[in-house]
Structures are given as C-alpha cells and as structure tokens.
C-alpha cells in the first residue's frame, strides 16, 4: 500500500518531464543533428579534412551569388517590412472601431495567413503578367498602349516591385494579427481616459496607443525580420534567380550545382543571422512597463 503510494507520487513528480521528453528529444535531434552535420559539410572536403574552400567559393567565386543575394534579401526586407507595419497598424485601427460587417472584414484580411508564398507569387503573377489583370485593364481603359513588363531579366527592378507587392499582400496579415491582438489587449479605459483629458485623435495615437502597442510591434518586427531571411518561394516563382536571395542560393547550390558544402554554409548563415537577431531583440527591448501591458 505505502509502496504503491510512493510509486505513484514518483510518477507524478516526473510526469511532466516524461510528457515533454519525446517532443524535446525529437526537436533536439532534428535540429541538433543537421546543424552539426551542416558544420561538417561546410568545413570539410570529400575526404573529411578541414577546409575553407566552401567559404572562399561563397565569398569570392565569380559563380557565387552570395553578396548580391545578401544585398537583395536585405533590400527586400527594408522595403517590405515598413510597408507591412504601417498597413497592419492601419488595418488594426480600422478594425478596432465598431461597424457593420466588421467580422467579415477581419476574416477577409486574415485570409492570406493561410496562403503559401508560392501561391501568393502565382496569384500576383496573374495580376501583373503581360496578359495579367492590370495590363489588360489599363490597356482596355486606354491608360497604356503597351503592356507593362514585370517579368524577365531585363526588367529586374519591376520584378523587385512584383515581389514587394506579393509579399506585402500575403504576409501583412501576420503582422496585422500580432498588432491587432496587441491592440485588443489595451484596456479601452486607457484610451477613454486620454479622450476625457482632452486628447484629440492624433494625440491619442501618438501618446497612448502607439506607446502601448510597442511590445506588439516589436514582436511583429522580430518575426517579420526572421521570415525575411527565409524568403524563397515567392522570389523563385516571380523572379527565379534574377533577384537572388539567401535561401534561393542555398537551394540552387544544393539541387542544381550539388555544392553541398556551400549550401550547408548558406543554411548556417541563415541560422546564425536569425539567432543574432533574436538575441539582439531580447537584449534591446525590455520595456519597463511590459509587465503591466501584458497583464
């Protein structure tokens, strides 16, 4: 009897660890092993000797696209993210008002959450192709005589714009959902207090709503920035390698050129950048009032 109780309480004590262990082991294996393997691939040759040849290839070889890829990845992030944050803030404020059809509008705005980057790219291809919606519309309206070309090597800046449009269209929903959730959490009385004490719309936004939304905006920024370094499908669909990006180059080196070491190096670089960004984020944004806001 007493032996039984003891056994039971021991099981109880270790139960949470027993429940978590399978998931954790799985994750540690499927992330730890590839990362270790990745380091091996990146820094050894076929015979298993240490080498920097992949690093040299990546950085200096004329057939490597690393620097342009880094540049375009950053450029895309720098253009896309601010637009997304602004739009998401606008949508969030819009949906914090009460109006008929509000739920419907909310569902519509979050549809892109479930649409993949490949599909998002194709959907915008249907809008921008030379036989696409916009070209046919504007030509029929007589605004343009010739289709505006968005795709092809010679139209790289237009391809860039197409990617920006597709990504803003598809991935703003994620930023929106985070900021909207944050806005919902702000007690209405904080805003009403500002109103009573004389704040107009702009003062309310500037001094109450934006500061209190800061944690949500920061979270959204972090997640969007991390995703920006993984951008792949939409670029491949709309521009191929015309606009090189880090993940795209990794894919190319791996599956077309069979440069496994170089591809692994790309993977490590993307992982390293993400970890550094996450670390900086945690260090930098420890707002003093965070505790209360999240309450």
């Amino acid at each position: 009897m007493s032996n039984n109780t003891r056994k039971y309480s021991l099981v109880e004590k270790y139960l949470p660890y027993i429940l978590i262990a399978p998931a954790l082991s799985y994750l540690l294996f499927f992330i730890g092993y590839p990362l270790t393997q990745g380091v091996l691939l990146a820094f050894t040759d076929q015979n298993g000797h240490f080498t920097l040849q992949h690093v040299y290839y990546l950085l200096y070889s004329p057939s490597s696209n690393f620097w342009p890829a880094l540049e375009d990845t950053l450029a895309l992030a720098a253009v896309i993210i601010p637009i997304q944050v602004m739009l998401a803030l606008g949508f969030s404020l819009m949906l914090s008002a009460n109006f008929k059809g509000k739920d419907m509008a909310l569902y519509i705005l979050i549809i892109p959450l479930t649409i993949s980057d490949v599909a998002g790219g194709l959907i915008w291809y249907s809008m921008l192709a030379s036989n696409g919606f916009f070209n046919k519309l504007f030509m029929t309206l007589g605004i343009i005589n010739q289709p505006i070309q968005f795709f092809g090597w010679q139209f790289r800046p237009m391809e860039f714009i197409a990617i920006v449009l597709a990504e803003v269209w598809r991935a703003t929903a994620l930023v929106f959902v985070i900021i909207f959730a944050g806005l919902q959490m702000i007690s209405k009385e904080y805003i009403e207090a500002a109103e009573v004490f004389g704040a107009g719309t702009w003062t309310k936004l500037r001094h109450i709503i934006f500061p209190m939304l800061k944690p949500s905006v920061q979270t959204a920024l972090l997640i969007r920035t991390l995703f920006a370094f993984q951008v792949f499908g939409v670029v491949m669909v709309l521009a191929g390698r015309d606009i090189p990006v880090l993940a795209g180059e990794a894919y190319y080196e791996q599956t077309i050129l069979y440069h496994y070491g170089v591809a692994a190096l790309y993977a490590l670089i993307i992982a390293a950048i993400s970890i550094v960004i996450g670390y900086i984020y945690i260090k930098m944004f420890k707002a003093q009032y965070l505790r209360e806001v999240s309450m």
Binding site: E189, E192, A194, E195, G198, A199, G200, I208
Partner: peptide, 21 residues
C-alpha cells in the same frame, strides 16, 4: 461636443493610469 471640448475630467473604475508613463 467631444470630451476634449468639455473641460471635464474623470476617475475610472480601473484607474486607467497609463502604464507607459
């Protein structure tokens, strides 16, 4: 008139003391 043009002030049930100030 909107609240800002009334010169009223209010103590809220939850106090609504802005946490970021």
């Amino acid at each position: 008139l909107p609240p800002k043009d009334r010169n009223v002030s209010m103590v809220f049930q939850s106090y609504a003391v802005w946490p970021h100030m």
